[in-house]
Design a protein around this nucleic acid. Sequence first.
DNA 1: GCATGTCAAGTTGTG
DNA 2: CACAACTTGACATGC
Length: 332
Amino acid sequence: MGYLERWVRMRLGLCCLFKEEPISFRTTTARALSTLPRGEQLRKLSHICRNNAENLLRAVDTVARLGIGAFRIMSPLFPRMTHPEVGYSLDQLPDGQGIAQVLTTVRDTAQKKNIRLSFHPDQFVVLPSPHPAVVASSIQELEYQGRLAAAVGADVINIHVGGVYGDKGQALERFARVFAQLSDNVRSRLTLENDDVSYTVTDLLPLCRQLSIPLVYDVHHHRCKPDGLSVEEATRLAESTWQGSGREQYCHLSSPKFGWKGTYPKAHADYIDPADIPSCWLGRAMTVDVEAKAKELAVLRLMADLQQKRLDKIVPGSSEVGDAGGGVTLNR
DNA sequence: GCATGTCAAGTTGTG
DNA sequence: CACAACTTGACATGC
């Protein structure tokens, strides 16, 4: 653990997939399953789930080997598990016990190698929806990911608020009411992220404080949908929502594919442009998920860039970023 | 084999 | 009013 590594305290995270490492996750469709008798469905699903659990284990080993400190687990790790027609539970699968054992190994391995695991349910989870059926399936999906998170030791299930329906305040109130119905398992892990269309950090802060929900700060979304806060202010305010949670602050970072002046800055680039790294993040203890199409290659390049940045700043007299902690490295 | 259209789900904004 | 964009492949089908 050299002096060099101690400077940058960020724990960098990989999102879901690998570009070059031979790790892949299988899936299936509800349509394909629906043509099979139930027994065949469960056998097919069992194979896919076993494959995915084993690849998750290899993913944890691999990110640890690469010096990456966090991994976001793809939502369909167990595909179609909450589907109304072809849904299933692990103990219905022929190899359900074996799959559960692999998940336990994932948890132990992640703990031993200090890899932080998280989930990010996708856009279909919309807690403030006015449609009861949408809320019900959203809760079901969250509870599924909550059980999975508990099994593998993930401490974050991060979502967006979702729709506005013409009245942000009322939507946030509905969110709070549904939040109260969630299990402790989900509630203790749930976090809220600012998005690039509707809900800014400013919009989310009161709700996050009221319900003690940590705020995941996505700086790219913030830049696409500004709210008057500077990046520093947003980072600091988001950090305050993590205090008392017993967990390290979580942020997201990406670069625009077509540049900030392009017609569509929301699209993610293959790599992170070092110019997009908020300088106020340097030297802070936080987890940063790297949302970039080149996947692990992008995280590795960012790590190298950050260390280079450290070299630039190491010149005597330049101490704008403090080093408060000891023994803290890139891949804590 | 290989190319290509499809895949559960919600919401918003654009053409 | 229809459709793409959110994440992104990989599956399933048909030549």
